[in-house]
Design a protein around this nucleic acid. Sequence first.
DNA 1: CATAAACTGTTTATCTCATACACGTATAAG
DNA 2: CTTATACGTGTATGAGATAAACAGTTTATG
Lengths: 259, 259
Amino acid sequence: MEREMELLWGLDRSEPRRGPKPGLSRGSVVAAAVALADAEGLEAVSMQRVAKELGYTTMSLYRYVDSKEDMLALMGDAVMDVEPPAPREDGDWRAGVEEWAHGVTNVYRLHPWSVYLPLSGPPSGPNGLRWMESGLRELVASGLETGPAVQILTMLSAAARETLRIELEMGRAARETGSTMADIGRDYSTGLRRVVTEERFPTIARLLREGALEEEPPPGSADGVAGPVDDMHFAVRRLLDGIEAYVERRRAAGAPERD
Amino acid sequence: MEREMELLWGLDRSEPRRGPKPGLSRGSVVAAAVALADAEGLEAVSMQRVAKELGYTTMSLYRYVDSKEDMLALMGDAVMDVEPPAPREDGDWRAGVEEWAHGVTNVYRLHPWSVYLPLSGPPSGPNGLRWMESGLRELVASGLETGPAVQILTMLSAAARETLRIELEMGRAARETGSTMADIGRDYSTGLRRVVTEERFPTIARLLREGALEEEPPPGSADGVAGPVDDMHFAVRRLLDGIEAYVERRRAAGAPERD
DNA sequence: CATAAACTGTTTATCTCATACACGTATAAG
DNA sequence: CTTATACGTGTATGAGATAAACAGTTTATG
């Protein structure tokens, strides 16, 4: 944890006094890696490949980054270098939280590979913390204590990451088979139908019967389909409802109870 | 998707007619890999190592598994081979859902490496589907439609995985530095204090001031500390509150509105 | 100003992996 | 009995991370 924070905040690497001018910098290395991942995916990101992209030898990268693992961690924070939503003027915290959830999703969407990065704990880099600040701010505006707000935020970002991952996976499958996202949903359904029996999986069977996995495409969505991420907001709104009820209840009771 | 389902359900591999008796089976290979991961972590799982564990050569594994990727997918479903909670008699769907959330967390906890497995979509293996069925059943008992129930379940399992991952990461850090989980929480706090300023991160600053990250250990928890996973249930309960309110509202309105 | 310390980028080498391919052998079907 | 098939092995390839030694470049310092 210590190490990771020093890494992400650049608190190591005191500025050098002697020796040749560095041709690269930690920033340029990370930027090249990010660009490469954007263009060809995370699998394409090897030290050799990043170095080639920069026109240097593989080992030169190790002057700027201690290991590939470190580089990946830096890429993770670099991706979040987007301004999070500004504080709302209207005090509508529900809208604020939803906006935040949309925001993170969109940030990830700009660099889809980033949802596959091996994370190691809560955010600790400058950009990650900026987003955390922004999300917490809105949640605390609801009247929640800071502790509970952290729990909620964790759930929200987990859901955003996971849901987007599923959507991306569907997109990849669609691209590979040359079909649409709607087709993939149907494929999944038919796949399930092959193994889901009424006795062993009654609820899933019902799900298939009701066609919940092959939804109506609302007009105006990217590829003609809602997609998991749009659907996610149903769950987000339930969570917001729950928070509202909780805060209300506590206010009424004079804030003694915690649950 | 097609391929993955056939893999996980063993719909490929028709029984062979000629040739020597196989010394291994897909099951034994996967079991060995799981055992190895349990003992030494996912990093230790290489084809070479699994083969050695079984007393065979590396390449022999490829008679049973097409690739390491496939093996990992099989391991992922194998881990879920635990009986999910049985249907509740008392009809207390809230308790049912919480029990389910505890259940998945505990299943993952038995094989911590499993939260680091690269997932590729919604569950499609027999064991994963059993858990999905169990969770959906409880959610649907609340009065939710099947579609929305899937969204909620996705959020729940994402949160469980992510939260446990954070807890495990803390545990690893604690083990490495020879300290306790409580120490790690304090370390994170002091680390943050070094970079969190009142102007740029007012809410996080408040969080630190209130010591929300260094909580009181409730008596009787593993290592003297609540840990992220216990905390998660606050968010779970809010979500349940929200579902309850939603179902109530819909019932009152004669179930026309959806949001 | 000279020189040594501190850096930079390169070369070379090592180790670990996943996986392709060809081989010898066992076994059951015809 | 013979032959197609499946099994386990040996060998080989190529990618990838990273360690170590080295040669060239600045700059602080005496």
